[in-house]
């Protein structure tokens, strides 16, 4: 905790993330209108619509605020699910020798598989919905976490205190829960941040090419609408329709990057930190 407080980048990142999380949670209280409510279409910014309105007359600022909700919801749920699966597989593979070989071949398979094309094709054939996106990301993003957790468990498994606990007759489940799990928690947090960073990038891309949920628009989906509008670049529309949504994505990714950087500095002080992908 104390170490984290001393890390300026980490603090900036955390501040940004909390800012967006607050907007997401309190969206109905902050947004001036319901994002589905329709007014005059493509209005320029004015006192009633601070960021104007879009092609079907929805208030862009309200869309942006509710979009925070959708983007962060998908990102956080999917990364929690993916890291959860990875944690479980990593713990089991690292601790129980008899499962190790098969689980690790499965992990290798998911590491080699061209995941983004597969995610895109599955998303294209499913009905576009927020939960479906969460589902496909969770299925294809757990492998790196599993590998990292497993190698940590391997080094923990034969520490003296673990052997001693086993000698006193402790069950495997007890050892895993009380003597191994607490030591991999920091790694789990690093993975949560890195996976979130990847998922929000991928989610915005998927929504941009038209695979997002049209009833719950994320930031990427807003960019999709804006880009499809014929005169988006010729008129000044892009300034309030495209730029804010794009910058929100960039800032969120940046916040995850900073938090990840700071956490890794604490968990893994040598410079051999993982690159951010």
């Amino acid at each position: 905790m104390k170490q984290y407080k001393n890390n300026k980048l980490g603090l900036v990142g955390l501040g940004l993330l909390i800012f967006f999380l607050l907007i997401a949670v309190f969206a109905p209280y902050i947004a001036p209108y319901d994002p589905h409510q329709r007014f005059e279409s493509t209005e320029h910014p004015n006192s009633e619509h601070l960021l104007g309105t879009n092609h079907v007359g929805q208030d862009i600022l309200s869309e942006l605020i509710y979009g925070t909700r959708v983007s962060l919801f998908i990102t956080l749920f999917a990364s929690i699910a993916a890291v959860g699966i990875g944690l479980l597989i990593g713990l089991v593979a690292g601790y129980f020798k008899r499962f190790d070989f098969y689980l690790m071949r499965l992990t290798d398979l998911f590491l080699t598989i061209p995941k983004l094309p597969i995610i895109i094709i599955i998303a294209a054939f499913m009905l576009p919905s927020v939960w479906n996106l969460v589902f496909v990301f969770a299925i294809f993003e757990w492998a790196i976490t599993a590998r990292i957790i497993r190698s940590e468990v391997l080094t923990l498994r034969h520490r003296n205190y673990v052997d001693a606990t086993r000698l006193f007759g402790a069950k495997d489940s007890h050892i895993l829960a009380w003597h191994i799990f607490p030591y991999v928690v920091p790694l789990v947090f690093v993975q949560l941040v890195l996976v979130s960073r990847y998922i929000i990038l991928a989610e915005s891309g998927l929504s941009f090419i038209g695979l997002g949920d049209p009833t719950a628009k994320s930031w990427g989906m807003m960019l999709h609408d804006a880009f499809a509008y014929p005169t988006i670049f010729i008129s000044d529309l892009w300034m309030w329709w495209m730029l804010p949504a794009g910058l929100c994505i960039v800032l969120t990714i940046l916040s995850f990057t900073f938090i990840g950087y700071a956490l890794e500095e604490i968990v893994n002080p040598s410079l051999k930190r993982s690159p951010w992908i």
Partner: peptide
């Protein structure tokens, strides 16, 4: 490079179109 890595490719592309293209 850290900032550039935070841009989704399609967003950076749009900015380039606006600035260098238009």
């Amino acid at each position: 490079f850290i900032s550039l890595a935070s841009f989704p490719p399609f967003f950076l592309g749009m900015l380039f179109i606006i600035y260098f293209g238009w």
